[in-house]
Structures are given as C-alpha cells and as structure tokens.
Design a protein around this nucleic acid. Structure first.
Length: 487
RNA sequence: GCCCCCAUCGUCUAGAGGCCUAGGACACGAGCUUUUCAAGCUUGUAACACCGGUUCGAAUCCGGUUGGGGGCACCA
C-alpha cells in the first residue's frame, strides 16, 4: 500500500520562462503536503519539448520558488539520490523503458508522417468521429518494420491501448473516476527526435523517483487513464492521485495571460509580499474548515489537508490578495518594515538621499494603517522624502481660503517660539493661534497640511509636523505661502 | 462534436440529512470615531442553477436538465 511508503511528492513544471500562479499553487500544495507528513518535496524539470526551450528558465524558476519560500529537498542544482532531475538528461532511461514496452508488445513503432496524421484527423472530423490514431502501423509485419528501420524512416513509439472495457482509478479529491478505454488514443510515448512525451516521462520518473502522491492540476485528469495503463504495462504500483481544481480568469476560463498577470514574478515586481501571496493562493481551492484566514507558513503546514481541497475551480481575486498583503504587511515588525522600506528607497528616485533609521521609523508608524504595499510609503506620502513640488489643485480650492497666508504666518510665528517641540506642542500652539485669530482649528489644520504635504490626505497634521521637524515644517509653510499665492 | 470534471452571496468559501429564517472573509453601502485620508468598531445589501425522486425532514443523497470548465498533439 502506498501509505506504508514514505511520502514523496514532486512539482514538475516545464521551464517556460516564468512561474505561473497556478503552478505556484500546485507547488505549494505539494510542499505543504510533504512538510505536513515529514515527506520529501522534489523539483523535477519537464523539458522534453525542445521547441519550447527557454534560456535561464530553470534558474529563474528556482529563484522564484525560493522567493516564495518553497524550498525543495531534491532537484536540479541541489541534487539528490534520484538524480538527474532534469528530464532532458534522462533520455537513456526513457529509451530503455520504451524498449521494454516494445518487447512486451505494449507499444509499437509508428512510421506515419505528420502529414498523414493530419489528413486522417481531417477525415475523422468530417464524419464527426473523435480523433484517434487509426493503428495503421500496428498492422505492420516484422519485415516491414525492419525495412523502415534500415531505411532510417523516422518513427515514433505509440502505446497500445489494451482491449479492456474501462479504466478506473481513484482520486483523493474527486473519488472514483472512470473512462471507457475505447475513447483512448494510442498515445505517442517517444517522439521521432528521441525525446519522450510527457505521458511516458512523468510515469517513468514518478515511479523511479518513488513518488507516492501525484498532486497536479485538473488539466491532467483526462490523460490519467493513459498513465494508469502505463503503470500497468510496466507492472508498477500506482501512486495516489490528487487533481487540483484550476485557477480561473474573472470570466471563468483557465487562468491565462491577457486577462491580467499570471507570472509569480509579476506579483513579486508589484511589491506583493511572498507570505501574502502564499496565504492567498493557499485559499484558492482549500480552506482549513475554521474561520481563520490569516495564516503564516507554519500554520498552513500544520493545518493543510488534501481532503479539504475543493473540486470546483477558483477565480483569482486580486482584491482579496491586496487585502491579504495589507494584513501581512501590518503584522510585520517595525524593524522588518524598515528593512523593506530601505530597499524600496534604494530603488526609488530618492536613492541618493539619506534618511536615518529614527526618521524612517516615525514615518512607518504614521503610515502603517495607510499602506498596502511597501512602495505606498513613497507613493502615498512622498512629502516625507521631499518637500512638495506642487499642491493638489482640488485641495487648494477647498482648503486654501484667501486669509490662509496671513493665518499661516501667524502660525509660523507661534511655531518659531517652540523649543524642541513634540507632537503635543504643535497642537497647543495651533490651538492658541486659531483662538487668537478667531477661526476654527480645522481651518488652520487643513491649510497647514496642504502647505507641508501638498495634499489633503494622510496622517494627522501634528504627526507630520513632528516627523518633519520644526525647521522643515516652517520652511515648507513659508514656501507654500509664496507659491500658492501666485497660483 | 466526443470524453471527463464541476455547480452555495459579485468573488474566495463554511456546510458531509434535522444545529441553516444558510455562517465567515474580500468588495460594496450606511453609521460611529475624527483636523483630512486611512485604520478600527457597529451595521446593511447579497447565494443553495433548474426539475424530478428518496426521506417524517435535503444546500446536503440519487437521476435528469441547464450552465461552466478541462481534455481530445511527435505541448506540457
């Protein structure tokens, strides 16, 4: 029984150049399952399509998985006792196994040209039949095969679908699944270039690598009977299958480019935190059965259960991901946020400006509840990093009455008298000014905010003043009096 | 077209025959708080696709219909 063996799972992407979020979800579930059961998480590269080879794809894939926190136990670069983990380096192995099938007559060589196959399909389509190889080459006699071989006619190897009524298998997520074998095509196992197809390679490797559970996307469900047959032909024990529901576009089609970002790298570049993306993606098709939604990695490992994975596809909902990011960001310590902000600043237009830790720490405290992303600190409150370059027109119209310059002059006078003012000192000074001018605090506050920040929203005015400091604040107010007057 | 899978608020989902006048979260609306914007708190709108059956009783089981998705390559 499979459950007596140790748990070994794999994530087996093809190196297309980037990691799809659906792939991330598949990798995550495999990873969680492995960790939860003290098993092994294998990374295997399925690069048997030479026409799709992308330079640097494997390195990028590994780096992205690393960023997401999904460290594999065995795989390329790292190695392991089942190496190599890159299929293009295992060609001999597949060849050997194909020969075994050929010998057992569970597979046969097919010399049909692509042109003939296409013609055949056209005919089948015309009469409304489902497209299946017509087995012409199965009828070849030994001498004909030998003749073709010696002439060097290119060929593929096809598996022979046996004459059994149905093929059934069990899926952890879907239960019993059954296919009529007459619906199955004599699938190509070995291409004419000597590379295996996915179907052969994944079965051979999963077996040789002692994979106990095959956890993959639902798009593989239809080809699973062919895989089951292969296991039977080889006389191997079946792994446990679990076919995950698909991730969908807002229009419910399979998640794809075109309808938004699908690459994990895109989300990384946009400033999403890996823990937020992981938390969010984990919930696309799975839930812990409780009302907890905020999860750290360890908690996910603890609570993850394949049995709690849904059957229906899930739409990738950006709004909730944004909320997740906000939640994860706000739960981070000030020190962590400081580090993140520093690296963000280092890539920003302020990269040559120096800010000390205390200063940034105060900015962080003030802005924490107002940001969902690290770069929001810069985007939403640039005034903490440079004096306002311009003043929001709408706000000027609404908050900058014609008396504003005079009022602010008075306020500056009051501020100038403060010694090392704290937040509260600005407050009392402003109240005093408002009182002597016989205007409301609000009037003065709004004008002052506009003067120091250039905008109408943000942390409390006294916080801004305190963070900026007396000198800078006064200078900004004076500048505003000059500049806004002339607007 | 054929095969397979799926079907609860707009979205992610809880629900494994009575606990459901269907719960939570995101989003949206209202209110409170408030110097602004957020945050926070309170609160509202909103769903069992449809039709039959089984049962004392069905969102939950069965059948069908409809709808959606996936697969039908010398791609993975």
């Amino acid at each position: 029984m499979a459950n007596l063996k140790s748990i070994r799972v794999r994530f087996a992407p093809s190196p297309t150049g980037y990691l799809h979020v659906g792939g991330l979800r598949t990798a995550l579930y495999n990873y969680l399952f492995a960790r939860k059961h003290k098993g092994v998480f294998v990374l295997r590269i399925e690069d048997t399509d030479r026409t799709r080879y992308v330079e640097g794809a494997v390195e990028n894939l590994i780096e992205t998985l690393h960023w997401a926190g999904l460290e594999y136990d065995e795989g390329p670069v790292k190695g392991g006792s089942y190496a190599p983990y890159i299929q293009s380096q295992r060609l001999e192995i597949y060849k050997r196994h194909v020969d075994m099938l050929l010998e057992k007559r569970k597979a046969y060589r097919c010399f049909c040209t692509p042109e003939r196959l296409e013609e055949m399909r056209k005919q089948q389509e015309k009469i409304g039949a489902s497209s299946k190889y017509d087995r012409r080459c199965l009828k070849l006699i030994q001498s004909e095969i030998q003749a073709n071989l010696s002439k060097g006619v290119p060929f593929v190897v096809r598996m022979k679908i046996p004459d059994v009524p149905t093929i059934q298998f069990n899926d952890i997520i879907r239960g019993k699944v059954e296919f009529a074998s007459e619906m199955l095509d004599d699938q190509v196992l070995l291409k004419s270039d000597g590379y295996p197809t996915y179907h052969l390679a994944n079965v051979v490797d999963d077996h040789l690598m002692d994979i106990s559970h095959v956890i993959r996307g639902e798009e593989w469900l239809s080809s699973t009977p062919k895989h089951v047959l292969l296991y039977q032909h080889f006389g191997w024990q079946l792994p446990v299958f679990a076919h995950l529901p698909l991730l969908l576009n807002p229009d419910r089609s399979k998640l794809s480019k075109r309808q938004g970002d699908v690459a994990v790298e895109d989300y990384r570049a946009k400033g999403y935190l890996p823990e937020a993306l992981i938390n969010f993606v984990a919930f696309l098709g799975w839930n812990p059965g409780t009302e907890q939604e905020f999860f750290y990695f360890d908690e996910l490992i603890n609570q993850f259960l394949l049995e709690h994975v849904n059957k229906a596809g899930a739409i990738f909902n950006i709004e909730k991901l944004n909320w997740m990011n906000f939640e994860h960001l706000r739960k981070k310590s000030d020190e962590d946020v400081l580090q993140l902000l520093r690296s963000e600043l280092a890539q920003s237009r302020y990269k040559h400006v120096h800010f000390d830790d205390d200063y940034l720490q105060r900015v962080i405290t003030a802005m924490r509840d107002r940001v969902s992303f690290i770069n929001d600190f810069i985007e939403k409150s640039p005034y903490f990093f440079e004096a306002p370059v311009e003043y929001d027109k709408e706000v000027v119209k609404k908050r900058w009455k014609k008396d504003a310059p005079n009022h602010l002059k008075k306020l500056v006078e009051e501020f100038l008298q403060l010694q090392n003012p704290r937040k509260e000192d600005y407050e009392t000074a402003l109240h005093r000014t408002a009182e002597s001018l016989k205007i409301s605090n609000g009037q003065l506050i709004h004008a002052a905010r506009l003067a120091v920040s250039g905008v109408g929203a943000g942390p409390g005015l006294y916080d801004i003043l305190y963070i900026l400091g007396k000198e800078e604040s006064v200078q900004r107010i004076n500048t505003a009096i000059e500049k806004i007057k002339s607007v």
